[in-house]
């Protein structure tokens, strides 16, 4: 196996409004290494002050979302082999930077929560009477769409890639609206069709989406917020 040297060009900063700089780190690209493996190699062998977040390393938790060569992606799923000799690594856009590649996910989850993301059963209390699960035939209308949208791992890639989020800090964003749709279309949810309308059809909700579609292009879980928002608009039209 031919081994080569790869340069990681990493955005570094002390967070907040402090100035951003880039630093180059050269690492040996061993077989099947991902960008996350490379970042960990930097920490373990060269510079333990580099800050970034990770957990499962298998593309399931969404902790390591960042911009790699300008595109939002999960660092653990970007193989070095698919990139050139220099790889630019930056934090997600539109979220406050804590340090280096570590961003504050609080605004993301605040908007997610504002879209009323929690399923509401007939009796939501965990300690109250338990019902039988709903019978849901697989071919049930729009279940195929819902099944795609519930795969969201809330990594923030779509949020970062959306130019409307970047321009309008009030916009709820693709992940939050996608979740709202998944619930609005879930026949098991007990809240009525108008329930989430107020939360998502307001001034900075679904009508602020400009149908750009970057969200679909970057989502590591194959979720399509663009479609979910369009369907939410159609749903919101019904009284």
């Amino acid at each position: 196996m031919i081994e080569r040297s790869v340069t990681l060009r990493i955005a570094r900063s002390d967070g907040g409004s402090s100035p951003r700089s880039t630093r180059d780190y050269s690492i040996e690209a061993r077989p099947k290494m991902s960008v996350l493996d490379a970042l960990l190699a930097v920490v373990e062998e060269q510079d333990a002050s580099l800050a970034f977040r990770y957990s499962c390393r298998a593309g399931m938790c969404g902790s390591c979302a960042m911009r790699i060569d300008g595109r939002e992606s999960l660092a653990c799923r970007e193989r070095l082999e698919r990139h050139g000799p220099t790889i630019t690594i930056e934090p997600l856009r539109s979220l406050p930077v804590i340090r280096d590649l570590l961003v504050d996910m609080t605004p993301f989850f605040a908007k997610y929560t504002a879209a009323e993301p929690a399923f509401t059963g007939a009796d939501p209390s965990m300690v109250a009477k338990v019902d039988e699960p709903a019978v849901v035939p697989p071919g049930e209308h729009l279940r195929d769409v819902v099944n795609t949208e519930i795969d969201c791992i809330s990594c923030g890639a779509c949020y970062s890639a959306c130019p409307v989020v970047a321009a309008n800090s009030n916009y709820l964003g693709p992940a939050a609206l996608n979740r709202a749709y998944a619930l609005a279309a879930d026949i098991r949810d007990a809240t009525g069709p108008t329930a989430r309308r107020a939360a998502v059809a307001g001034e900075d909700g679904i009508h602020a989406c400009r149908s750009v579609g970057n969200c679909v292009a970057v989502c590591p879980a194959g979720v399509t917020p663009l479609v979910a928002i369009q369907l939410l608009r159609k749903r919101a039209l019904r009284p």
Binding site: R67, G70, R71, T88, A161, P163, R210, S211, V212, G213
Partner: peptide, 17 residues
Amino acid sequence: RRKPIGWWSFSGQWAFA
């Protein structure tokens, strides 16, 4: 200079702009 063009690699971004 082979610098990343980020979201300018998406057709939707160009359409929007």
